[in-house]
Design a protein around this nucleic acid. Sequence first.
DNA 1: GATGAATGAGTTTTCATTCAT
DNA 2: GATGAATGAAAACTCATTCAT
Lengths: 202, 202, 202, 202
Amino acid sequence: MGQNKRMLSDKQLSKRKAIIEAAINVFSHKGFHKAKISNISKLANVADGTIYLYFNNKENLLVSAFDELIESILVEMKDKISNEKSALDRLTKFFDLHVDVFTEQPAVVRFLAIELRQSPDFYELYPSYNPLKEYISFIEKLIIDSIKEKSIRAVDSRALTLIIFGTMDFLLTEWSTKNQPFSLVEMKEKIVDIIRWGIRIK
Amino acid sequence: MGQNKRMLSDKQLSKRKAIIEAAINVFSHKGFHKAKISNISKLANVADGTIYLYFNNKENLLVSAFDELIESILVEMKDKISNEKSALDRLTKFFDLHVDVFTEQPAVVRFLAIELRQSPDFYELYPSYNPLKEYISFIEKLIIDSIKEKSIRAVDSRALTLIIFGTMDFLLTEWSTKNQPFSLVEMKEKIVDIIRWGIRIK
Amino acid sequence: MGQNKRMLSDKQLSKRKAIIEAAINVFSHKGFHKAKISNISKLANVADGTIYLYFNNKENLLVSAFDELIESILVEMKDKISNEKSALDRLTKFFDLHVDVFTEQPAVVRFLAIELRQSPDFYELYPSYNPLKEYISFIEKLIIDSIKEKSIRAVDSRALTLIIFGTMDFLLTEWSTKNQPFSLVEMKEKIVDIIRWGIRIK
Amino acid sequence: MGQNKRMLSDKQLSKRKAIIEAAINVFSHKGFHKAKISNISKLANVADGTIYLYFNNKENLLVSAFDELIESILVEMKDKISNEKSALDRLTKFFDLHVDVFTEQPAVVRFLAIELRQSPDFYELYPSYNPLKEYISFIEKLIIDSIKEKSIRAVDSRALTLIIFGTMDFLLTEWSTKNQPFSLVEMKEKIVDIIRWGIRIK
DNA sequence: GATGAATGAGTTTTCATTCAT
DNA sequence: GATGAATGAAAACTCATTCAT
């Protein structure tokens, strides 16, 4: 049975990590249904059965991999934007970093953008669960702060969050599934320009 | 074997339609992989084998359902916006209708927003295929026209298309997967306001 | 339901014949299990259902095709050897004709040599049925006559039948499945020579 | 996936053997197409899936069973005839043993005589493959040696091989499919007598 | 704890056969 | 009689999961 992460020894933690990394890799490239447990165990250099010592089942492995991937990305991004003075600068930087991270790891885009939506049963069972929740909440927080700082006009923070995340998501999905059909950096600048206009203080 | 749609009798066309409708319904609720052909055939009141008289296989049924659904939606929407005077009005109306259509048929949102991304094999086989292509192209065309009419400033049409479609898509996905957590119409107005500001002529 | 052949009109008889011919053709080339009723009906220019007006089922069609093919071959061969004076000449001629017939229609060899053995259930149901029975009996009769005429020594007729038919069958199967790896006529002469030596009057 | 036979543990080898034996049994009685994998797995006391740990697919199981059966029979027969002084004695003994082996295991006759010809696809894919090749070659070698030893006259070795194998094959098929309608041993003696006459040195 | 051989449930697709027209 | 659209039973094979070692 999958065990609580906190009760594991160092050796076990590194084994668990190897499994998670292998899982992200395999799920990203093959998709949830075509990914075989044996692919993941082979890549992680463990036996098939070992995976079940750390995770309850395949779906739980997918969800765990999601959670930890997003958490690690978010931690890294929070750290990198911490030097920025204003909330708006942090938000802009966040957008930049989002694009950077995913440009460097296109497989991760597939994983987050596509696999995320492949467990409808899971959503049915846990409608409130959303691995992106924290990520999106962070964006909304930056927006609220920017409004408080009066760097941007007092738009609805939820609405702006939807615009920003939805656009980032679709931008990267298009770029990724269509094999980089445009310059991501240039396109990002153009998008930021439009959105900035929409929220600037007159 | 799947047959050419044009060679079918009226009776056959209605049977084919029943299958497509059942397929959209089942795929929407269960996802491609968990949807069983027998679920679809039962809902359509035909035998399993009958589906294979009209479609080559399960994937072909998914793709056909997509194509026909999007085409019918697009035709309807094109018709409804044809009265609008300016391209910008048509674009705005298009956004409204998009939300209306999907509000009325939440299963369709799931189908388009989620299932769309669930046939990775298909995309590998036909990387250029994208059932949303025409839909997205139409949005971009409205944007280009609006710029020509000088109703909006001369932003990059591709960038604005990404913003509009990405936002619409995410707005509806959030609203749909989280069981309508906010007023869709109000949220839409707020989003339109922000984007309009971003593209208005000073 | 399959009907008695004798109650059919001329038109029906020709339809039945077309089906039998198509069946031999398709069974020969595809084998019983890969042959589809629709292949046969298409080749015979009738509807699938029509076949069931003349034959009870697929297996019955196979068996009927066998029977009629062998009967027609046997009738033809009996006619052709009727001019030969002695039973031994008729037997020798029969062997020659056997080879000729199958050289001209290799598909028929496959049909008789291979498909013949593919209905084990059928043999279980009707252990006494053997479509080759009459054919083999005829060989044995020629042997018995030859012995009576003292053209050959008084060997056991059954034993010699087994040698002659077994050799003919294997000769043609080898020649047919291995794509004519030797000169059939020359090999036949060599075989006949050996067997003749074995049965000649000292 | 089917594994290399040499890399298996003793336990696995015995499981593999049980599967092969069950396969021969079931294929013999039902024929390739009517034999179900579940019949074989049940008889071998393993799960359906286990068969696929040892063999790639049903056809591969058939072919493997063939190969191993013929090889084991041939090894045994070669050993048993090794004491005979002359090649002609070995050939005669070989014929005797052939009949003995198959008399003791009638199911094996069916398997070799009937199933052998039931994989038309296989022959199409690998036209040169013939599991009986080695067996037949061995007979021809004994014939060539007998001629060299001047025990028999200098007939064409290929022709005589066709006679001997064809006759053995048909003899056993008739005896087997018609439920032992004659004394196999007596019939064999009569056949050997005829053939011997045909090839003796005057 | 780790292993990996064994399990067996589960589903698409084919195609002989039927029967309403 | 003839048609061919519709039926639905049937089976090979995969792979997540288990558990004896």
